[in-house]
């Protein structure tokens, strides 16, 4: 009899693998993006099972709530031609295979190095009121402050680079200058013109017949 926890784990793990496979096998790119969302979700479930609720919710918040929305945004606007996508598949296949092999090797190295990977016996259980977030914050800002700051700087550089790459001033764009709009005064735009009242001319018979 497997425990409830194991059951939940296998459920989420199966879902993750299924969704991840569908991401690369499904033909429609919008479906692929949605399956990626499902994969993130089931992954968050597994993290939750590992008592990493902060990371689990952040995964949903950042990747599902923001990154994938923008992904979908782009994918939906593209007119994807499947035939064109398939072109050159075998030409690039060796590169892809090598990269995939390297990634698998790295993962095995990382995961195999931890004693915890064997049974999970090295993990301690915490009470319900144990704050995962506080603990994570404490570690990030003490033991791992340099890697953390380094990552922050890297991200900042990436942000600046992304903006610098896309920022270009085009001429002849009629965009509004909000400061100018707010600073506009009535006197600048409106001129009161005084003029004598017009007198209505008496209508003659001729004009009336013309109108009709």
């Amino acid at each position: 009899m497997i425990s409830f926890e194991a059951l939940v784990f296998y459920l989420f793990a199966a879902l993750t693998v299924f969704a991840a496979l569908r991401v690369i096998t499904v033909r429609n790119p919008v479906y692929a993006a949605l399956f990626l969302v499902l994969a993130f979700f089931s992954m968050a479930g597994i993290w939750m099972l590992l008592e990493a609720e902060f990371l689990a919710v952040t995964l949903v918040l950042v990747y599902v709530g923001a990154v994938m929305v923008l992904f979908l945004f782009v994918v939906m606007m593209l007119d994807v031609d499947l035939a064109q996508l398939r072109e050159g598949f075998w030409r690039w296949f060796p590169f892809g295979a090598v990269i995939a092999a390297i990634m698998v090797f790295e993962m095995v190295m990382v995961l195999g190095a931890r004693q915890t990977s064997e049974t999970g016996a090295g993990l301690t259980r915490h009470a319900a009121d144990y704050s995962n977030t506080k603990e994570l914050g404490r570690l990030i800002y003490t033991d791992y402050v340099y890697p953390f700051e380094l990552a922050a700087v890297l991200l900042l550089v990436a942000i600046v680079a992304a903006i610098a790459l896309t920022l270009r001033r085009r001429k002849g764009v009629k965009s509004q200058d909000v400061a100018k709009q707010v600073a506009a005064r009535r006197e600048d735009n409106i001129r009161i013109v005084q003029m004598p009242a017009e007198k209505q001319m008496p209508v003659t018979g001729d004009q009336e017949s013309e109108k009709a």
């Binding site: 969302v37 929305v69 939906m76 009121d129």
Partner: peptide, 21 residues
């Protein structure tokens, strides 16, 4: 939940999927 605030943020950010889809 301890991470209630984050959970709320995560859930409210999911509503947009229905609209996009």
């Amino acid at each position: 939940a301890n991470a209630g605030l984050l959970y709320i943020l995560a859930m409210t950010s999911l509503g947009v999927y229905g609209i996009i889809i």
